[in-house]
Nucleic acid binder design. Structure first.
Length: 425
RNA sequence: GGACAGGUGGCCGAGUGGUUGAAGGCACCGGUCUCGAAAACCGGCAUACCGGCAACGGUAUCGUGAGUUCGAAUCUCACCCUGUCCGCCA
């Protein structure tokens, strides 16, 4: 969410930000209306507070007369009339405020200057590591290989829950545990993250804090009877850990990592890259979250991204880092690097991580602040997060990239101790 | 799920419907004293918003939201959270 003051004195900044995302045409009317509503809101407040001040005077006068034993009937009548005025003005203020708020919730974050403008065709590969296999045509796709190895049971997943819900079995199930432990050990022991094990459902306030609500309610599984939502990523509970709190400057930068299952309805993407493990309704993920000062957040994005990349390097999977163009950058994000790994049999680069800095966009929504020094005013922190990593696509890439001529799969050295074997066959 | 008890400032804690933004204490900051420190004493110490170049003025905030009233931390209702006991249960 943006600072409401931008609507007053930096409207062109917002306008330019929307243009860079290629959404000005669509959002211009909303911006205009929001600007008008903000003026209306303040006008209502000014009038309302004048009436409230008047009422407070009358009220005190009543008290004094009562004490002196004088008659206060006229004043009480006046107070009643003012009260009616106030009720009307309050309603006017509330309506304007709710309307402005609703519009602010619809506006995406302002991207950093170095983010290329335009749509996804302007995404830029800024780094490559390793060599993708060129013999993909000769390889068995992960869904067939996984089934052949007894690791993946997609038909029964569909039976017990539905299409897109995966059953891992035998070495596949153990592989999930191995990946979880390997990643969490790396981030806690080498990268300085605290570990958190968090709820898989959150309330509406948390979903609003990180930006999933109110705009993306359709994308989430919900438990309406309890007003809870299944998390699409551990980003939501982990970032909201410090909602409505003031951190000490000495706490920053702070890193938290956590494993969670992630639930996504993927409404509207039926049939698109949905084979095997490419796009599923429930997957596992280790998430990194960082809190930093505003001055340091850009640097923190590089650190965070490097932490995610370290996992890929340990898994010996060739990847590339893509700087997303403004139009492809997520709603809450100011700058995002996607990490993509090549799945040779599928013949596609798969997004296995998305590392973002949200500037103060989430912190303002979630009201997460820090005090730079004792006595100073609290300021909003900057939040960051990134997957490190999403398991299902990693498993797909492991099965394809490390596939050997006889249909077995080599297990990367770093994973061997966790899985307890050197290959799958 | 049921029955009680409770939610007040950074923390503890008072608060008969009428200068209560809220006593008192602790913590914190500044000062006096001291070679220095402690103690003692003096003073300061919430947040957000509106108006104003500013000085400053105003409004709101006692878990949340509604209501009663000229006026609500205080009364009523609903909800949320915490604690204790009972029930149920992995």
């Amino acid at each position: 969410m943006h600072d409401i003051r931008l609507l007053r004195d930096q409207l062109d900044l917002l306008r330019e930000a929307m243009r860079r995302r290629g959404r000005l045409g669509e959002l211009q009317p909303l911006l205009d209306r929001a600007e008008w509503l903000e003026r209306e809101r303040r006008a209502a407040i000014t009038e309302l507070e004048a009436e409230q001040a008047r009422r407070n005077k009358v009220t005190q006068e009543v008290a004094q007369r009562r004490k002196a034993g004088e008659d206060a009937a006229a004043l009480i009548a006046e107070g009643r009339a003012i009260g009616e005025q106030i009720t009307g003005l309050e309603q006017r203020r509330n309506e304007a405020e709710a309307a402005v708020q609703a519009m602010l919730y619809e506006l995406p974050n302002i991207t950093l200057p170095e983010v290329p403008e335009g749509d996804e065709s302007h995404n830029t590969v800024v780094k490559s590591w390793g060599t993708p296999r060129a013999d993909g045509a000769t390889l068995v796709p992960h869904w067939d290989l996984g089934a052949a190895l007894g690791m993946l049971d997609l038909p029964r997943g569909a039976k017990v829950a539905g299409s897109g819900f995966i059953v891992y079995r035998n070495a596949g199930a153990k592989l999930v545990r191995a990946l979880m432990n390997m990643m969490l050990d790396l981030h806690t022991a080498q990268h300085g993250y605290q570990e958190a094990w968090v709820p898989l459902v959150v309330n509406r306030a948390s979903m609003t804090g990180t930006g999933q609500l109110p705009k993306f309610e359709e994308d989430m599984y919900a438990v309406p009877s309890d007003e809870l939502f299944l998390i699409p990523t551990a980003e939501v509970p982990v970032t909201n850990l410090y909602r409505d709190e003031i951190l000490d400057a000495s706490d920053l930068p702070m890193g938290l990592c956590g494993y969670s299952a992630c639930f996504r309805r993927e409404a509207g993407s039926a049939g698109k890259d949905t084979r095997g493990l490419l796009r599923v309704h429930q997957f596992d993920k280790v998430e990194l979250v960082r809190y930093s000062t505003p001055e340091d957040s850009r640097h923190q994005l590089e650190l965070l991204t490097a932490h995610a990349e370290a996992v890929l390097e340990r898994l010996d999977l060739p990847y590339r880092r893509v700087l997303l163009a403004a139009g492809d950058t997520g709603f809450s994000s100011a700058m995002t690097y996607d990490l993509e790994v090549f799945a040779p049999a599928v013949g596609k680069w798969l997004e296995v991580s998305s590392c973002s800095v949200f500037t103060d966009f989430q912190a303002r929504r979630a009201n997460i602040r820090f005090r730079a020094a004792p006595g100073e005013k609290p300021r909003f922190v900057h939040t960051l997060n990134g997957s490190a990593l999403a398991f299902s696509r990693i498993i797909a890439c492991l099965l394809e990239h490390h596939q050997q001529a006889d249909g077995s799969v080599r297990i990367p050295d770093a994973l061997q101790p966790y899985l307890g074997r050197v290959e799958l066959r």
